[in-house]
Design a binder for these strands. Structure first.
Length: 280
DNA sequence: GGGAGCCTGCTG
DNA sequence: CAGCAGGCTCCC
């Protein structure tokens, strides 16, 4: 479900309610959400700890606990982190952290997401996490860095942008939106994208992420913030979910196809294929 | 590269 | 009923 703007929305909304509070009880209804611990192991290391911070890296959230450890969370497709001020019936909760005051609830229909217990510093051993690229919303993600990543690469640009080792936080929606804004076809070979185009692409990524964040994230079907509220960015999308509708720039019918296994929308006119001989 | 697999639920 | 879904890993 969530990409960088959605995860960041959850973080900013959730932090004021949980940071500073002590975890008094752990309730696990679906043990498979614990990816690298057992229920007793998780409980032993988490109960009694205080949540000292909530940070995001790419699409991961990390609850920093008092002591040496942190709880790493990835929502994958349908994970939700919700704050409840008081105990209530919670038939869909996969896991609940009872706090001094209130509860942190984890829901996840498809149970792709989950929790890892990790050291606050040093390698975590979590597949994918230690090798994340620079955060897409961070200062280290520059146009020059992006240019280096594309140079000489035969991969399709969409596959490369979805690769969290290259840049962390982009997903299917925002990649399609950024490529449309930069007038680049999703299946272009990365190496064929010109220096000027890379500059436009980098700027477009910044814009679409900022717009998503400003609208509290994109809700197509599942996404809600920690208060259960949906985002509004879906109303501002230019191509994602709009196949068959006219391109907002030129009126050509937007196309749906598969690129690197993912549903992909683009404008066949604004995002024309370029000659293979262009260079970075 | 591409594909299967992890899961459940919704849409056509 | 098949196909699709804001993700990611593993395995050719």
């Amino acid at each position: 479900m969530p990409e960088l703007p959605e995860v960041e929305t959850v973080r900013t909304h959730l932090a004021p309610y949980v940071v500073g509070k002590r975890i008094v009880q752990v309730e696990v209804n679906a043990p498979n959400v614990l990816k690298n611990t057992t229920v007793p192991g998780f409980r032993n290391r988490v109960v009694g700890k205080r949540i000292e911070g909530l940070v995001r890296r790419g699409k991961y959230l990390q609850f920093l606990l008092s002591g040496e450890q942190a709880v790493l969370v990835h929502l994958r497709m349908t994970g939700k982190l919700l704050y409840r001020p008081a105990l209530q019936e919670e038939p869909r909760a996969r896991l609940r952290l009872h706090l001094q005051k209130g509860l942190l609830v984890y829901e996840d229909v498809r149970t792709f997401g989950g929790f890892w217990l990790v050291p606050k510093t040093g390698p975590t051993g979590v597949p994918g996490y230690d090798t994340l690229g620079p955060d897409a919303a961070g200062e280290a993600f520059t146009a020059a860095y992006l240019r280096q990543c594309l140079a000489g690469k035969k991969r399709m640009i969409k596959a490369l942008l979805l690769d969290q080792h290259v840049v962390a936080g982009l997903g299917n929606i925002y990649v399609d939106e950024a490529l449309f804004a930069a007038h680049i076809r999703p299946d272009r070979q990365a190496a064929t994208i010109s220096r000027t185009e890379v500059g436009k692409l980098h700027a477009a990524i910044g814009r679409v992420l900022a717009q998503g964040l400003a609208h509290g994230g994109t809700t197509i079907r599942d996404f809600v913030d920690s208060n259960g509220r949906e985002g509004t960015n879906q109303s501002f999308l230019q191509v994602y979910g709009r196949e068959g509708m006219p391109c907002p720039h030129c009126g050509t019918r937007l196309v749906y196809t598969k690129v690197s296994g993912r549903g992909t929308r683009y404008c066949p006119h604004c995002q024309r294929k370029r000659r293979r001989t262009q260079h970075v």
